[in-house]
Design a protein around this nucleic acid. Structure first.
Length: 870
RNA sequence: GGGGGAUUAGCUCAGCUGGCUAGAGCGUUUGGCUGGCAGCCAAAAGGUCAUCGGUUCGACUCCGAUAUUCUCCA
């Protein structure tokens, strides 16, 4: 069965059991601070488990693209070494939100595997949670009884808390799980060791394929469990593993999910899969990683140096590294695989096809830049080896190479090994750990339990139409972090405060109690679909009704910037072409930032055209037309622009100004006239194929023009109001360089004369050409003069003194030969003479200077100089 | 968000613990030689040593801040 059909059959099966098929959520998570990537099928439904939202259908099924790069069962560094771990994978799942529970979940899972996919019942094992005495959780007897009806008891295994009790995190919904395992070993192997002894033992051919989680508890901050009012089912089946089972192969990489990629890698790199273990690992690493990276980029996540972008960069660099070392790829090649991937998976995931061009460009650029890093690192490593005669390279050195210059540690170890050097791995690990501890303590967040104040559900955001509302506090908690200190997070029954999202910053404002107490709301965010208000303090009395008031001026400026962002988007597509796609935006009160795909610099003329386009629409006073109750399809049919990598609900909000229609949850002005004016202040690149425009509107634009005008008039005033200021400045510059040249020539002339005069004053004393004199030159001039005289006269001993800005300066020059011959040291001499001018000094044997605060002593110092050659 | 590094000629970079009058290669210009594949030889031009401040007799070098950039960690 082809992988495409395996996926289809799964979804169809649950559709026949009254489940709605929903699309995969984006792999990159945008508005959940606790998670960077979707790492399990349940992520997009988290809000339903937490009770923060209600699903349209209580039965849902999907295939979810997931990314795992850390965690108990998957470390990035392990992927590729075996045949069954991945960074990016698909998770097939079926879900019940307070609907069916263990009975149906278990029976349907068995039916699908054995009757639809026709997997031999004899090779399947199931596990049931054995209970945990410490936490007083009983054995999952319910699941056990259900399984007993289907499976012979000798194929039911009891699992401990680690394997069979599922938790989302330290806090939140959790519950026991039942896993289905499959034994793919040969008959001989099975005869030697029974399959049930290998379940959960990390055997590559005895693997878990489906995990059925029964969510029935909530874990509180103190570690205790409470029963949930509604019970849920959350299942996940690894798509790639299922394909392995159904296609009768022994490795995920032998399924048709991976074979096209592997063939292409063989072709590009001229290597063969299946002959050499090192080569195989490299090929698997690349095949796996290119999927993860391409999907992430298609979801809008570019490789970068922070957060999710950094994870993507690391994955891609690992692929490059393996290609570099084991497949001898010294030039960019990973990007060439995107085409194959897009052909193969573009049907199930159309974003891949749409973003193919971008994916290729971004990956190629990233490859080139990393190959440069590697080159640089190789040179540095060579240097380290030269500086290490005992051939024992310290972990500190290797860490520096890794930490500061980005040179991978495994490459360091490999090269050192080849050259017969050893590496202190332990010290390296220690250094790494230190760095981790530093970072962790800097970003640690401690959150307390939610304290309920008023019961009830929250209505959510009501601030499209109003900036003020009478609200009640539903719950609050205290959060402590190094960055922000102690803060309170408050949840209201409804709120006019816009939470940070869709690129727009969260609102600020105040909360007024009936008694007149005022609490400042410093920011508003969204977590698991819950709107959270941040404040430094809590009101004295939490129970009453409060007036929540948004900072209106700030919101108005933000709204102007957000609406301008839409017009800018439209302008870009008009002026530059429809290949322009939004790749990110940041809408604040004082400026806006817009990233978009475009492959060349936007010219000054185009910038002008874009500004004009937007300002024309501002001048046309286009009213806001808002539709909050459209379906996604209706909006798209109307011509609305949706964003890749964005998760849309079943009802969307469309924002329209004239011909600009976008799906958007942000706040906007009522009429484009409220934007006043739009001005681009910068344009530049953020990544290959991605450009960034920064712009300002309304008051900020006014301020900009005012300050620019001020600077301009100041310049004019300084230049005495010339007709053409630009020409005036250019004249000044020309004149300046001309004068500089003249001064230089004059000074040279002067020095020449002075030099001639001084030369005549040189006296021979004891075979040494000696001169001690006060001159009127600065430190640089004296040095110049000294060396010039030194070039022309042998056996020279010079002492110059000068007064500069009320301070005394002495300098001493001694011909090199003379210094060596007579054992003279200018530095020592000048130090001794320095006491006459109340100062100190030093330098080399042949030239030294001293400074002091007593210019009156210069003459005395000069008189004393002669004794050094007597 | 936290740490580390870098910023020197048009380009790629040296310049060690403060003091050799800031250098090299490539490139540019000029002159000479030469029948090519990076032609050869000679000479010259080209630098606010990122910016600002501090320490010092003296700062490219040490310290602090800023900007830009690379990199690791979260």
């Amino acid at each position: 069965m082809r992988s495409q059909d395996i996926r289809k059959h799964f979804l169809e099966f649950f559709k026949s059991k009254n489940h709605s098929i929903v699309p995969s959520a984006p792999m990159v998570i945008k508005d959940d601070p606790t998670l960077m990537f979707t790492n399990a099928g349940m992520n997009q439904f988290k809000e339903f488990f937490l009770g923060n939202g209600t699903p349209v259908n209580s039965r849902v099924t999907d295939t979810q693209k997931c990314l795992r790069v850390s965690g108990k069962h998957n470390d990035l560094e392990e992927v590729g070494k075996d045949t069954y771990h991945h960074t990016m994978f698909e998770m097939l799942g079926n879900w019940s939100f307070g609907d069916y529970f263990k009975k149906e979940a278990i029976e349907w899972a068995w039916e699908l595997l054995t009757e639809v996919y026709k997997i031999d019942k004899e090779i399947l094992y199931v596990s049931v949670f054995e209970g945990n005495e410490e936490e007083e959780i009983p054995v999952d007897g319910e699941a056990l009884e259900l399984w007993k009806k289907i499976v012979p008891e000798d194929r039911i295994i009891f699992g401990n808390k680690k394997d069979n009790f599922w938790e989302m995190g330290d806090q939140g919904p959790c519950g026991p799980s039942s896993e289905i395992h499959v034994d793919l070993r040969s008959e001989e192997e099975k005869a030697k060791i029974p399959g049930r002894e290998l379940v959960n033992q990390d055997h590559p051919l005895v693997v878990e394929i489906w995990n059925l989680v029964f969510i029935q508890f909530n874990r509180k901050a103190d570690g205790s469990l409470e029963k949930l009012p509604a019970q849920h089912v959350d299942t996940g089946m690894g798509f790639e593993r299922l394909c392995m089972v159904l296609q009768g192969v022994k490795s995920n990489y032998d399924t048709d999910v991976f074979t096209p990629l592997i063939k292409e890698i063989e072709k590009i790199t001229g290597s063969t899969y299946g002959k050499n273990e090192e080569t195989d690992i490299a090929i698997r690493v690349i095949a796996d990683h290119v999927r993860a990276v391409a999907f992430a980029i298609a979801d809008g996540q570019l490789p970068g140096s922070t957060g999710a972008g950094y994870v993507i960069r690391r994955i891609l660099r690992r692929a490059i590294r393996y290609g570099f070392t084991f497949l001898n790829q010294k030039e960019a090649f990973v990007y060439k695989l995107v085409d194959t991937l897009s052909k193969q998976m573009g049907e199930a995931f159309p974003e891949l096809r749409a973003q193919q061009n971008l994916c290729e460009n971004v990956i190629r650029e990233e490859e080139n830049s990393f190959l440069r890093t590697l080159d640089q690192g190789l040179i540095l490593l060579d240097q380290i080896m030269q500086e290490t005669p005992d051939k024992k390279v310290s972990g500190k050195k290797a860490f520096e190479l890794y930490d500061t210059f980005g040179f991978p540690i495994d490459l360091t170890a490999l090269i050192l090994g080849e050259k017969g050097y050893s590496l202190d791995q332990k010290e390296f690990e220690e250094e790494l750990q230190k760095q981790k501890d530093r970072s962790r303590s800097a970003s640690k967040v401690i959150s307390g339990d939610w304290q309920e104040v008023n019961a009830g559900e929250t209505e959510g955001f009501v601030g499209y139409d109003t900036l003020e509302a009478e609200v009640k506090i539903l719950r609050y908690r205290k959060v402590k972090s190094k960055k922000e200190g102690e803060l309170y997070q408050l949840v209201f029954d409804k709120t006019p405060f816009y939470p940070e999202g869709g690129g727009q910053v969260g609102d600020k404002g105040v909360l007024e109690s009936e008694s007149g107490e005022v609490i400042y709301i410093t920011d508003t965010r969204k977590e698991n679909n819950l709107i959270i208000h941040l404040s430094k303090d809590l009101p004295q009395d939490l129970s009453g009704t409060f007036k929540a008031v948004v900072n209106a001026a700030r919101r108005a400026r933000t709204a102007a910037n957000h609406s301008a962002t839409h017009l800018l988007h439209q302008a870009l597509r008009n002026v530059l072409g429809t290949h322009v796609e939004q790749k990110g935006s940041m809408v604040q009160s004082d400026y806006l930032r817009f990233d978009f795909s475009h492959f060349s610099k936007v010219t000054a003329e185009e910038i002008q055209e874009i500004e004009d386009f937007v300002n024309t629409r501002i001048a046309h006073k286009l009213p806001l037309v808002e539709n909050r109750e459209m379906t996604y399809e209706e909006a798209i049919n109307d011509g609305a622009i949706a964003l890749f990598g964005e998760k849309y609900g079943d009802k969307v909000r469309a924002i329209r100004f004239g011909d600009s229609i976008e799906l958007c949850g942000g706040t906007h002005v009522g009429n484009t006239a409220d934007i006043w004016h739009f001005k681009i202040i910068s344009e530049g690149a953020v990544a290959s194929g991605i450009r960034r425009i920064e712009a300002i509107t309304s008051e900020a634009a006014k301020d900009y023009f005012v300050s620019q005008t001020e600077v301009y008039s100041e310049i004019r005033a300084v230049l005495k109001n010339p007709k053409d200021p630009v020409k005036a400045v250019m004249n000044l510059q020309d004149e300046n360089t001309e004068l500089k040249k003249q001064v230089e020539a004059l000074l040279k002339d002067k020095a020449k004369n002075l030099k001639g005069d001084l030369k005549n004053e040189i006296k021979e004393i004891n075979g040494v050409n000696f001169l001690a004199k006060k001159v009127d030159l600065d430190a640089g001039g004296i040095k110049d003069l000294s060396f010039q005289l030194g070039d022309e006269t042998d056996n020279l001993f010079l002492i110059f003194g000068t007064e500069q800005n009320g301070k005394a300066l002495l300098s001493c020059y001694i011909s090199k030969e003379l210094a060596a011959e007579k054992d003279l040291h200018a530095g020592k001499i000048v130090k001794e003479l320095g006491k006459f001018i109340q100062g100190g000094g030093g330098g080399q044997p042949f030239y030294a200077t001293a400074g002091g605060k007593n210019p009156a002593g210069i003459n005395e110092a000069l008189q004393n100089a002669e004794k050094y050659i007597k």
